[in-house]
Nucleic acid binder design. Structure first.
Lengths: 354, 354
DNA sequence: GCATCGTATGTTATCGCTAACATACCCCAC
DNA sequence: GTGGGGTATGTTAGCGATAACATACGATGC
């Protein structure tokens, strides 16, 4: 591949291999000014259809790819949306991120993804890194923010959306639901079915996480019904998976042998608990009822299917995407939107495991 | 929050809310030049320790966040690594992306993630979008690239790493394994155990995907053993999940009632098939043996545990990360690395389901 | 027929940072 | 004491695009 940039002084081959051409190269080849090329590419300003077509033909011919780093510096619009999730390896967050990306792509926005590993300090570090890219919106998944995190967001003056929970003390907009209330509803349903010795398997060091809210929701339900609410086992820091559920359920039965139902902080954990029961010959739901949270594919497919809380996860991505586009449109007109709180549905679903 | 940028002419509040300060603001406050601030922040050039500390103190005090858009334009290093995966909602790819991000973060590199939905055209579109950000390395998950995709990569002159497969016609570096060979080994093992009527449940329209390689691997094994290799069911376009496995296994038994083993393109699919068998009272592995691919958590936890192919997924992320850092270091010294092909282990694991 | 307007294009001046070069100063050797 | 070489800093000139302003020209109205 010969160097074709002879027109100007020879360019050094820097670490970024430049898409061979710059906008001025295209302009020269098309016999117009760079500004006209810019307008033709963005299809916004006034350009005659013939000029536009001509320019685009040259662009295609050369294989010119515009440089958004330069464009962003000049236009002051990075085209980035920063999205922080606790973990990518969680179908819910993966779907949320994927859904968001799909909504934003047509609008020319790109998602910058980061995962915090459920650690506020990691969130802080990651956010700082991302703010250097001047995102136009920041999306956070409720995770207990540090003081510095809040300060950075404040200083940056960037719109913030918190999702997957309705935080007590929100930073900006919210698209989510109350994990505590949803969990309480699930607990209420189990109690209504007649279970009386209900245990909860959850995560340790879960300050600020959804898991902590869910634990409290179950406790709320048990207390309200006057039942024993001490049967809480905190296994390990989030996220806990199937194998944690398996070991935890054994521990629960060792500590509180008369337990008749176990509610887990999430579906994978519940699945692990259930298979361990089956392995040991404890029938589900005969000897022990099981419930999870989240309505993952595995809960629907397991045998028996697992009682859980179904969250309208697709709606979170969709509504968040729409809100981002609105925020951006408002900003373009120099306005700011008032704080929005969008409630997402999360309902218990009774299945064979309870 | 009052506007504090009075020093120069009043700045318009553009769509990107500027972190209040620019490097010159910091320089002014510290009584040094912008260049010194830049050097202090990057900790590379010659700066006296006292100056450095002083500058960093001012930076912290003001809450200054450097602008990488401007920095990237000037230095010609975007700090981006573009990573394309078929789907985020797949524990393997999620872990790969997560692992990569962790390796690259300390080096100041940021991952730009995109998902292709197993569609070459989407890959092409996504790649074009990403190339506008001038990534320093592009990571692709083998997926059957379009001609234009290959051309764009060629023109961009950016190093490419293909992962999770060893493509026949690689674009650049490779970190992966042969899905076909691994699958063939699994098939061989099933045959050795005595299964004779083996069916395969896979994906339709799977050109260029790992699924297609796996199907061929099973066929290779069956042909080599002189067994019937026609029992192949292509259910739906990738990715197929648990529910597809469930419906497919029923269809397999309807078409070929004497089938004694079913190998699925992936573990979730195998799990779905297995639970459906159990639901119908077909014992696993008594009536029907089941195997999957990938060694997902679910295969280890299911009852019985599912025979599968264990891929050293963590190694893919680690080796790819290391290769990226090497490529970058080489580039910094103006060199290019010769094409690397790094082989990852992928071995059949026999479990209770077969 | 001339002022007025709107459309299509070009010109200029940044955007915020860093590479490359320039300078100032200090220390040491001979 | 003078030259050479190092270290710490400053100055200048872009990086490649776009916003904002300037211009050219044809159409329209009276």
């Amino acid at each position: 591949m010969a160097e074709r940039n002879g027109s100007k002084k020879a360019r050094t081959a820097g670490p970024i291999r430049h898409g061979r051409y710059r906008m001025t190269d295209v302009a020269e080849a098309a016999g117009v000014s760079a500004m006209t090329v810019s307008r033709a590419l963005k299809n916004d300003g006034p350009v005659s259809p013939e000029t536009r077509d001509h320019v685009l033909r040259i662009v295609a011919q050369l294989g010119y790819v515009p440089d958004l780093i330069a464009g962003g510096l000049s236009s002051k619009r990075s085209g980035f949306v920063a999205v922080l999730v606790p973990s990518l390896n969680n179908p819910h967050f993966a779907d949320t991120v994927g859904g968001l990306a799909e909504v934003l792509q047509p609008a020319g926005l790109q998602v910058l993804i980061g995962h915090t590993d459920y650690c506020p300090d990691q969130e802080e570090r990651l956010l700082e890194t991302m703010l250097r890219r001047r995102p136009e919106v920041v999306v956070l998944t409720f995770d207990g923010h540090t003081t510095k995190t809040r300060r950075m967001l404040d200083v940056a003056g960037v719109p913030v959306i918190e999702i997957w929970e309705t935080p007590r003390n929100p930073i900006g907009h919210v698209v989510g639901f109350s994990n505590r209330k949803a969990s309480r509803a699930l607990g209420g349903q189990m109690i209504a079915k007649g279970y009386k010795k209900i245990a909860f398997i959850g995560e340790s060091q879960d300050k600020g996480t959804r898991g902590s809210e869910r634990r409290q929701g179950i406790r709320d339900a048990l207390k309200a019904a006057g039942l024993d609410w001490e049967r809480v086992l905190s296994v390990a820091p989030p996220p806990i998976g199937m194998s944690h559920g398996a070991t935890a359920v054994v521990e629960v039965m060792r500590r509180w042998p008369d337990t008749d139902a176990v509610i887990c902080v999430s579906d994978p954990c519940a699945f692990g608990a259930m298979t361990e029961c089956q392995r040991r010959g404890w029938t589900v739901p005969g000897r022990l009822a099981i419930a999870g949270f989240g309505d993952f594919e595995i809960s629907r497919c397991a045998l028996p299917a697992i009682t859980t809380v179904a969250v309208d996860a697709a709606a979170i991505a969709r509504k968040t995407g729409e809100l981002i586009l609105e925020l951006r449109a408002a900003d373009q007109r120099g306005k700011t939107l008032p704080r929005q709180t969008i409630e997402i549905s999360a309902m218990p679903v009774e299945r064979g495991s309870s």
